[in-house]
């Protein structure tokens, strides 16, 4: 099954209430699969092709505001269009899932895979002080598994969550174990707009507060939430780090490339290890900081001109040299060239 199809099927099985999207390569299979799979008959899930990415993300806002499990997906240029809506969703504290199957940019760029939307995903993306919870799958299995995880985290923190994938994992075919079908939830969150009953005050979904002091309090509450997410939700995977002298840091497709690099390096007696962040926000700063003291150098490997490397440097905080190696524009890094680069720095 393709990574994109795994996301779609996992969404139906996770009991998602709705998907709103707009076609864009390399992720159109998500909408295509959902339309073909007839989820409305299987679970009652609503699937709608919107007139634009802008409309799709605002449909997500509306559905999420009703307390429903709602998602959208797109690829880089489309995610840029969604940023206004994502900012509103973050401001209004609505849970939802946004999938970005990244392609190379800027602009129309290329339809080939890239990791150049890291900053956009983890630093906010739209206007204002906010964060998404960002999960980075490195396999088709994780594409499927992270759908439910993302929804769970989104609802736990009333915060939008993003799966930051790329065209390689979206299009790649792998064996995948899917969870059994879950019922759609009938639970209605207390804050959802479902019609004001006499038993409660009216519910309002908004990100607006014209009183600067009230707005500041709202933003402080968001910050408290982000600190809580940073304390509780950091996820990463470590491979061969125990005896490593050289640490590679890579996520998604780059992490798969680096696994091969590790084998090549170890065969040559170079003690390389890999830390793969699974959550890009919250980022595993603490873990990288403590590992840094045992390393000679650290290399951030990314399919971009160096974005995550800034967070790696923040984590390392000058303890050891930190370098960046990456290909971009849709070029997938080769394991051998990562090793060659590493050797130049040893």
């Amino acid at each position: 099954m393709k990574g994109n199809e795994a996301i779609a099927e996992a969404a139906i099985r996770a009991g998602a209430d709705a998907y709103f999207g707009y076609p864009i390569t390399p992720q159109s299979e998500i909408l295509e699969y959902l339309m073909a799979a007839n989820p409305h008959e299987r679970t009652g899930m609503v699937v709608l092709q919107a007139e634009s990415e802008v409309a799709a993300i605002n449909m997500v806002y509306g559905g999420a505001g009703c307390g429903k499990k709602v998602m959208t997906s797109s690829s880089s240029p489309g995610i840029s269009l969604k940023q206004e809506g994502i900012s509103y969703i973050a401001g209004a504290q609505l849970p939802c899932l946004i999938v970005n199957v990244v392609r190379g940019g800027p602009g129309l760029g290329t339809i080939q895979p890239a990791q150049s939307d890291y900053f956009q995903a983890v630093k906010g993306g739209g206007h204002g002080d906010y964060h998404l919870i960002v999960l980075a799958p490195a396999s088709v299995q994780e594409m499927a598994d992270f759908v439910e995880l993302a929804f769970d985290l989104a609802f736990k923190y009333r915060n939008p969550a993003m799966i930051l994938s790329d065209g390689a994992i979206g299009q790649m075919m792998e064996k995948v174990y899917l969870k059994p079908q879950k019922q759609r939830s009938t639970e209605v969150p207390a804050w959802a707009t479902t019609g004001k009953t006499k038993e409660r005050e009216r519910n309002i979904i908004t990100s607006l507060d014209l009183d600067p002091y009230a707005q500041e309090q709202h933003l402080l509450r968001l910050q408290e939430k982000y600190r809580e997410i940073e304390r509780n939700e950091v996820r990463f995977e470590e491979i061969m780090v125990d005896d490593a002298e050289f640490l590679l840091v890579a996520y998604g497709t780059s992490a798969r490339v680096c696994q091969k690099t590790l084998q090549l390096a170890r065969a040559e007696g170079i003690k390389a290890g890999l830390l793969r962040p699974i959550t890009l926000y919250p980022f595993p700063y603490e873990r990288i900081r403590s590992l840094a003291s045992h390393m000679k150098i650290i290399v951030s490997v990314e399919m971009s001109m160096g974005q995550m490397v800034e967070d790696v440097k923040l984590a390392v905080n000058g303890q050891v040299p930190v370098y960046h190696f990456g290909r971009m524009g849709g070029v997938i890094t080769e394991p051998e060239e990562v090793l060659e680069y590493l050797k130049t720095k040893i």
Binding site: V46, M59, Y61, Y88, I204, L208
Partner: peptide
């Protein structure tokens, strides 16, 4: 924009121009 202050109803405040998209989802889901 502050209509929700004046009507004692459940109300969502939409981004500029997007109300029909927001309403589409609300109606389709409920």
């Amino acid at each position: 924009v502050l209509m929700y202050d004046f009507l004692d109803l459940d109300i969502q405040q939409a981004a500029h121009g997007r109300a029909p998209a927001v309403a589409t989802a609300i109606k389709r889901l409920m």
